[in-house]
């Protein structure tokens, strides 16, 4: 796979860098704007995942790796992290409800 890496031009890295900066700037500006909290959170989460995908795909070269490796990384990290959070989140909400009674 290394031969595929060498075909990548530096321009890709700097375009990725520019997109990351634009997304970061957009997130900071939106965070200071007055808008619905729920909408803001979903936009920020979407932007966060876009930034993570850009770093993984272009800086870490996952876009040029075999699908087996990509699935191993993405499934193990993202799905395990999401499962972990969604398994413990209901308990957090229950604690909050109990403290507010």
């Amino acid at each position: 796979m290394l031969r595929d890496w060498s075909e990548v031009r530096y321009g890709v890295y700097w375009r990725t860098w520019f997109l990351l900066l634009v997304l970061t700037l957009m997130m900071v500006l939106l965070d200071q704007a007055s808008m619905s909290r729920i909408v803001l959170v979903w936009i920020l989460l979407a932007a966060m995942l876009m930034k993570a995908s850009l770093i993984g795909a272009y800086f870490m070269h996952l876009r040029f790796e075999k699908l087996n490796l990509v699935l191993m990384v993405v499934v193990e990290i993202l799905l395990t992290a999401a499962a972990l959070f969604f398994l413990i989140a209901p308990d957090g909400i229950r604690i909050l409800e109990r403290s507010q009674r």
């Binding site: 193990e76 990290i77 992290a81 972990l84 989140a89 957090g92 909050l96």
Partner: peptide, 27 residues
């Protein structure tokens, strides 16, 4: 290196999930 990155990523995932739990349970 990828295996290390996955395990290390899960360490941070644990921290952030714990943080999310505390955020949800805090009034």
């Amino acid at each position: 290196m990828w295996v290390f990155i996955i395990t290390d990523g899960l360490l941070f995932a644990g921290f952030l999930a714990g943080y999310g739990f505390v955020r949800l349970s805090s009034p």
